[in-house]
Simulated assay, not measured.
Amino acid sequence: MYDIKAIVWMLPVLFMIHDFEEIVMAEAWSKRFKRELEENTSVMRKKPFGLNGTNYWSTSAMSVGVEIEFVILSLVSLLSCIFSSYFIWYGFLFAVTLHFILAHFYLCIEFKHYVPGVVTSVLFLPVCVYIMYVFQLLLKYSFVKVFLSCILGIVLMIVVLVTLHDAIGKFSRLLAEYSL
């Protein structure tokens, strides 16, 4: 009924479509809401897209970070298909799903305006939940195995995102210096 290996490839596909929204909209969004983002009264404690005063990540720098994330998710999907082991893949899918809720829904509610990535988060959240449900039916993971997979996925995704966010900021500064 379900081709598990085809479903596995939905993770990098959904991720890329979601991040295309961020890549396309982040710079224009940062300019449109510049005043709101710079005000001390802004409710956003952590500014998205590397915003710091009037600086934000360049589109090209963001694209490099997205490319690296895409490669990581594609490798996880490929290795899951090759070895028919979905423990880490399931954890990454859970982490991406959680990212939709915690990063985009929360930021959108907190900011009270559109935040890049929220449209695809709304569209893809039910898809991701359904995929996790289907995988649970197919793999019959115990609660403990699902829990451990999700915790591992969250930890790995945090490490990847923190590392990439730091690298994107540095790469953005390098590109700015190079262009002078």
Results as ranks from 00 to 15, higher is better:
A28C: 01
V122S: 05
L180S: 12
C108S: 12
N55R: 13
T97A: 14
S30V: 05
F100I: 03
H99V: 04
W9R: 06
R45F: 07
S42L: 10
E38H: 12
V122C: 09
E36P: 00
V134C: 05
W57P: 00
M16Q: 10
K5L: 08
E110Y: 02
M157L: 06
Y114M: 04
I154P: 00
E177V: 03
I68D: 02
L125R: 02
M44C: 02
L161S: 13
V122F: 09
M62A: 07
I109E: 00
V76P: 01
V13Y: 04
V160C: 10
K112E: 09
M10S: 14
K170A: 11
E39W: 12
L137G: 02
E38N: 15
V96E: 12
S84P: 01
D3Y: 07
D166H: 15
L138N: 07
P12Y: 11
F100W: 12
Q136A: 06
T41L: 08
S80N: 06
A61D: 08
V155E: 02
W57V: 02
R45V: 06
I72Y: 06
Y86E: 03
L93H: 09
S30K: 07
V127E: 03
F111M: 04
M157R: 03
E110L: 09
L148E: 08
S58P: 00
L164W: 08
L156T: 11
V129Q: 01
L123Y: 02
M16C: 14
L174R: 04
L161Y: 07
S30F: 11
V8N: 05
A167P: 02
S172I: 05
S121Y: 08
D19C: 08
N52H: 14
Y178M: 03
A176H: 14
I17F: 14
P48Y: 08
L78H: 01
S142D: 09
R45W: 04
K47I: 03
V129L: 15
L78K: 02
F135K: 12
R45H: 05
K34W: 07
A6E: 15
F143T: 06
M1C: 14
I158T: 13
V8T: 15
P12I: 13
I68F: 03
L137T: 03
F94L: 06
I101Y: 07
F83C: 00
I168L: 07
S80L: 06
W9N: 06
K112Q: 12
F143Y: 12
M16W: 10
K170D: 13
S77L: 05
N55H: 11
G53Q: 05
V162T: 14
I101C: 07
T120A: 03
S77W: 09
S77Q: 10
L164I: 15
M10P: 00
I151G: 01
E36K: 15
L75F: 12
Q136T: 13
E22T: 09
W57G: 02
L14P: 09
E39R: 15
S80C: 05
L138M: 14
